[in-house]
Design a protein around this nucleic acid. Structure first.
Lengths: 356, 356
DNA sequence: CTGAAAGCGCTAACAG
DNA sequence: CTGTTAGCGCTTTCAG
């Protein structure tokens, strides 16, 4: 360690200024100087100190990202997509997990801020409890929320159009003949859980089908399994179950199979996310696919537009998802298949709305 | 942004030195000064600039970690465990994925080095191709490898004792009556794949059972599924299949079920890792559990002992794993169960060996 | 085109 | 106990 630009300059017989210019290429130097500096740097194994550069430039080339947990395949997929987008502009990602805990989340935001990230991407773990820390961070640095958001609309957000998603899911099972459908999801402590439940209720009301009390727990395999057991214990199974994410769906599927229930003959199951193991579970899962790459692209695009000094109204970008039909849902019966087809087509657009 | 310690000092009517001392508490100041500084800092919303501190201290309080991919649950589990350990000493983790590509890996190592991380934890994606970049990094900063390592033993490593692991797995299925067993794993481009295959061959030879040609592809669900199809296509199934990781095992299980093969009645299946969905697949997977928390603890302990300036011989720490018997393997028959029991007991120790 | 020098924000001597 | 000052490594005016 420890070879600085001074060492390079000395070895090349020029001033540090020239060395800096030659190395960065941001200003003209004689070809000969350029050559000497480049060689000296190579010979000494010079590696620029990004910390010093950051201090001087007041910018780190770094974006912080905070997600609830990296155990959830949806978030890891999103992280990879964001990293991929950032790479295009040569920036790096600092990744943190809040472990679904607002206190840890706040601490993570603060250390990211202390490290002077140029921007922040966050999926706040709690609709209410995350708000103060997120708002505070948004005041210091460009920030955009992804997937989940905090109450009050104080910061930009990119996510999926949950109303469209649930409408597609509900219409699809209804087209398959379902008359009763229940929703298994997470408790309402984050925006996704709220929006999806609302979308579900809207869609079932409009379709005029029977929706029992929703089963609300966590976005986990375990909860899906547990919910499946409860459904079985109830004695009277619904025609279809729509799940808040794929983890839940896979757990539920397993409980159902253990209970001797045939899917999709006796009950249809629809998931949400289409990341990870949806194609490999048994039977392959019908699910709503989140347009993760698109979302990631929008997130970094938005991040580049945010100006902390001159705030504009917060933007919300809800990208319409697409239902992917596999084998856990009954095939469409009768002429109703036009509905499902329409749902798929409608899912390709993109909506933009502004929020007060 | 932009409230510095100078602002705080001025507001408190003291020098920057006193402000710094009061804030850090690393030196005595009058209670009154302490009080005034603290209040000024709070009122101004002062947030120390970690970049400046890092430049001054020549240490960032940051450890970089590079794993092949965060899509693999084993690595995410390991990352979480490492983060957890690091937190105890107040350090932060900078996480990068090499995407199983040596070039990306090398680039990631360099930006981490440029950002002056205090240490590096890496699971090199390729046994050979990763070596130059890893060795170069190890020359600049304390570095410990985890799970995978590069050829030549030039850097510390913490991992699992694959010989013990495979011996336990093989002895277990043999105790259940298996006479032929095949190994499904990854191609040999990383150390884990090599060690596990070697361990498998050793164990089957010692047990005197028939091991066909190993099926080597990738550490993925898809490969497991594909391998299952090939086994089925062969017409003659082995009594047991041992897999290089759980992803493979889950994919294999699915192919087998689709092919109408009953597990474990017709063939036993054993996985490796015991992270993620091993308990939730159907039937629950018998697998070798990696002691992830222990490994993470050893990694950060070792990291604190490495001195770049005064290198000591590279250490290798192979922690013995434990076989977790669930429902994809046949129960032990006859008196042979003493073997399996011995395997489990032997698996609780910890071995340390030094490498040339 | 090149060099000298200032300064990013912070902490640790070094005096007082 | 407190203040002044140097300097971490870098880039960028500002003169020449």
């Amino acid at each position: 360690m420890g070879v600085t630009i001074h060492d390079v300059a000395r070895a090349a017989g020029v001033s540090v200024a020239s060395a800096s210019r030659a190395l960065s290429g941001r200003r003209k130097v004689t070809p000969e100087v350029a050559e000497r500096v480049t060689r000296a740097a190579a010979e000494l194994g010079y590696q620029p100190n990004a910390v010093a550069k950051a201090l001087r430039d007041r910018t780190t080339g770094t974006v912080g990202m905070v997600v609830p947990g990296i155990g959830n395949p949806f978030f890891t997929t999103m992280v990879e997509a964001v990293e991929h987008q950032l790479q295009k502009s040569g920036r790096d990602l600092l990744l943190c997990a809040s472990q679904y805990t607002p206190e840890i989340e706040a601490r993570r935001l603060n250390t990211l801020l202390a490290r002077r990230v140029d921007g922040l991407i966050i999926s706040p773990c709690d609709f209410e409890a995350s708000a103060p820390a997120v708002l505070n961070a948004a005041r210091q640095v460009p920030l955009v929320q992804v997937d989940r958001y905090i109450e009050g609309g104080g910061a930009d957000w990119v996510g999926v159009d949950d109303d469209s998603a649930l409408a597609q899911a509900v219409d699809h099972v209804v087209a398959g003949g379902a008359r009763s459908v229940v929703f298994v999801s997470s408790r309402l402590m984050n925006s996704s859980a709220r929006l999806r439940l609302a979308g579900f209720q809207l869609a079932t009301a409009r379709a005029g089908v029977d929706s029992g009390a929703p089963l609300l727990g966590e976005f986990t395999l375990d909860w899906g399994f547990e919910a499946g057991r409860r459904l079985l214990a109830d004695g009277t199974l619904p025609d279809a179950v729509i799940c808040g994410n794929d983890e839940i769906a896979v757990g539920l599927l397993r409980a159902l199979r253990l209970g001797g229930v045939r899917v999709p003959e006796e009950v249809s199951v629809v998931g949400f996310d289409d990341v990870g193991h949806a194609t490999m579970c048994d039977p392959p899962l019908t699910t709503v696919r989140q347009p993760v790459e698109e979302m990631a692209a929008e997130v970094v695009r938005l991040l580049g537009q945010v100006r902390v000094s001159d705030p504009r109204p917060a933007q919300r970008l809800a990208i319409a998802p697409r239902l992917v039909v596999r084998e856990t849902s009954r095939p469409v019966t009768s002429g109703a298949d036009t509905i499902a087809a329409a749902g798929i087509v409608a899912g390709n657009g993109q909506e933009e709305e502004e929020v007060a």
